[in-house]
Computed example of a mutant assay.
Amino acid sequence: MTRIYALASAVLIGSLMLGAAVAVYLGQTRGASDDQFAQCRASVVAGGAGAIGGPFTLVDETGQTVSDTDVITKPTLLYFGYTFCPDVCPLDTVRNAEAVDLLEAGGHDVLPVMISVDPLRDTPEVMAAFTANIHERMLGLTGTQDQTDAAARAYRVYYRANREGDDPYYLVDHTAFTYLVLPEHGFVEFFSRETTPQQMAERTECFVEAGS
């Protein structure tokens, strides 16, 4: 009798485990099928992609106040940096520009943008000179301290100016991700510094085509 109970328990446990496995599988499959960009994603965002991005108001290179809807009218590679940055920002923005050129060769029009995290020094004129050296279509955005803070919060960007007194040569610590934003979908992906231009172009192309 004990053996019969043991066998019955084993069968029951096996059935429960199988049921749980099927439920997990179905849940994963359903979640993936609900995400039109599932085949493109290579990163995970805590809280989901909707936790990053949102409205902002900044100033463009001509001194005009613009909103996110004015700027993001096409697939956009959004980067937060500053023009006095000695190494990281030039390398990252050049990488982004190279990815944009690769995408253009493949028939995709993607806008490279840099938002300054150093509004004290990065005037519209300074931003214009910087972006012109990187790519003819790169857009530079700056703004007031409050506008910069709001944009950084929207994209979960950390930055801190290491400024003491009137030192004009201070550096700014900041996160260095590039964000892919689509007009009708908002933020969809981020790229780390290790991402190559080719990898960025390929993943961006996947998102653009999946979102069209």
Results as ranks from 00 to 15, higher is better:
A49E: 14
G81A: 01
D118V: 13
L78I: 00
T73F: 00
A49W: 08
P124C: 11
V88N: 02
T83C: 03
R30G: 00
Q28W: 05
L78Q: 01
V117R: 06
V88W: 06
I52A: 10
V44T: 13
P119N: 09
D70T: 09
R121N: 14
L91D: 12
I72R: 08
E104R: 15
R121M: 13
T29S: 14
A105P: 04
V66S: 08
D109Q: 10
G107T: 07
P86S: 10
N96R: 03
V126Y: 01
E98N: 10
D87L: 12
D118Q: 13
V45L: 03
L111R: 11
G31F: 03
E125C: 06
V100W: 03
G63C: 09
R30K: 13
V88Q: 06
V44L: 06
S33K: 11
L111P: 09
L111G: 02
T62L: 10
D70A: 06
M114H: 08
R121I: 14
Q39V: 15
P55M: 09
V88T: 14
Q36K: 14
V100Q: 06
C40Y: 01
C89Y: 02
P75F: 05
L111Y: 00
V113K: 04
A38C: 01
D68I: 00
T76F: 07
D70W: 06
V44D: 08
P90N: 08
G47K: 02
F84P: 00
T57P: 02
V88S: 07
A49G: 11
V44W: 10
G50M: 07
A46I: 04
S33P: 14
F84N: 09
G107F: 09
L58P: 11
A46C: 00
A38L: 02
A49C: 03
P75H: 04
